[in-house]
């Protein structure tokens, strides 16, 4: 009895990690973006673009590496649009981000429909070899360990990639000169400018980097979460949860690891609870309700914005000082 319960818990954590990866990538990407002083509400759209680019590249080239690279580049392209509008043309960040979401969702569903219509069966799937590249790894000696194996060493390589990206982002932001400059821009762009930091260049590069990482999250959804078959509206709100998770994580990629595990767990819990007690719709609602609670709690706790970069959401115009 105790053994089955333990197994069940291990299974839930395993599933939570798998479900948390797109959230982790989206959160990490958005943290980098916000550290440059730009609140990009287009994470959902960037994920859609990444899903479409990654899926289409995997479908046509049969290469998992190209799928990931194309997804990343798709995100870079999408966020260049955002950066051009908000950094150079100083458009409203909220509206620009929302537009990116509308555009990205339309674009991805468009590409998906086109792929589906190009086949006779009206369903598109990636080839078995691309899918196999995202099978759980098998590390000799480790993956077979009784509990630790399932908890730590049996994920697909995308999971490890995401964790590595989050940790590297943490190091980049907190331990490098470039990261320090970036944080300075997010806090006070005018001061950074006076210090000799190339504000515009930093903003562009980091918004693009962040956008690319968000898009990888979308590729994960299309390739792993959806099992390599294109599903209409596949991202369905996960990008938005990622934006909220940034606040939950207090703009720290390390805490984002924890946050995405929790929210990954919330989104899979409905498959593990015995049926009949709670209506399924209520369980699907859970991650969104908890996000609201988190928003409220963090705002009550830190009346003055907490760790949010002080200049986040405000466009910088040098001549306006």
């Amino acid at each position: 009895m105790a053994n089955t319960l333990l197994n069940q818990i291990v299974n839930i954590i395993n599933a939570a990690v798998l479900a948390g990866v797109p959230l982790l990538l989206g959160t990490t990407g958005e943290i980098i973006t916000e550290k440059s002083g730009h609140l990009n509400l287009g994470v959902e759209g960037l994920m859609y673009i990444g899903a479409a680019f990654g899926f289409a590249a995997g479908y046509y080239t049969n290469s998992e590496a190209l799928a990931l690279i194309c997804a990343f580049l798709g995100g870079v392209l999408g966020s260049v649009l955002y950066a051009f509008l908000t950094v150079t043309l100083r458009a409203n960040q909220n509206v620009t981000g929302l537009t990116l979401t509308v555009f990205g969702a339309g674009f991805a569903n468009y590409i998906g429909d086109a792929l589906i219509n190009s086949t006779a069966s009206k369903a598109v799937s990636l080839s078995a070899e691309v899918k196999a590249a995202f099978n759980p790894v098998s590390i000799p000696g480790l993956s077979a360990l009784p509990i630790a194996g399932k908890l730590l060493f049996q994920y697909n390589m995308f999971v490890y990639l995401a964790v590595a990206i989050a940790i590297l982002t943490g190091l980049y932001l907190n331990r490098t000169r470039t990261g320090l400059n970036l944080r300075a821009i997010g806090e006070n762009a005018a001061a950074a400018d006076a210090m000799g930091v190339r504000v515009t260049q930093y903003k562009y590069i980091n918004i693009m980097l962040g956008g690319g990482i968000c898009a990888l999250g979308g590729a994960y959804i299309a390739i792993v979460t959806c099992g390599g078959t294109w599903i209409y509206n596949c991202v369905s709100g996960q990008g938005w949860i990622a934006v909220a998770l940034v606040i939950f994580a207090g703009w720290s990629p390390y805490r984002a690891l924890m946050g995405s595990l929790v929210f990954g767990g919330l989104s899979v819990i409905r498959f593990y609870l015995p049926g009949g007690y709670v209506p399924p719709a209520m369980l699907s609602m859970l991650p969104f309700v908890v996000t609201c609670v988190v928003l409220v709690v963090t705002s009550v706790r830190s009346a003055r914005g907490g760790n949010q970069p002080a200049a986040c959401g405000v466009n910088y115009y040098r001549e306006e000082r």
């Binding site: 649009l81 051009f84 509008l85 043309l89 100083r90 458009a91 409203n92 509206v95 620009t96 537009t99 990116l100 509308v102 555009f103 990205g104 969702a105 339309g106 674009f107 991805a108 569903n109 468009y110 998906g112 429909d113 086109a114 219509n117």
Partner: peptide, 24 residues
């Protein structure tokens, strides 16, 4: 013409991108 209706979303996005840019 068997063009996906999602093209409307793309077009909406493009229009708004241009208007946002023009506000500059």
């Amino acid at each position: 013409y068997r063009i996906s209706a999602s093209a409307a979303g793309v077009l909406q996005g493009v229009i708004l991108f241009f208007v946002l840019g023009s506000e500059f």
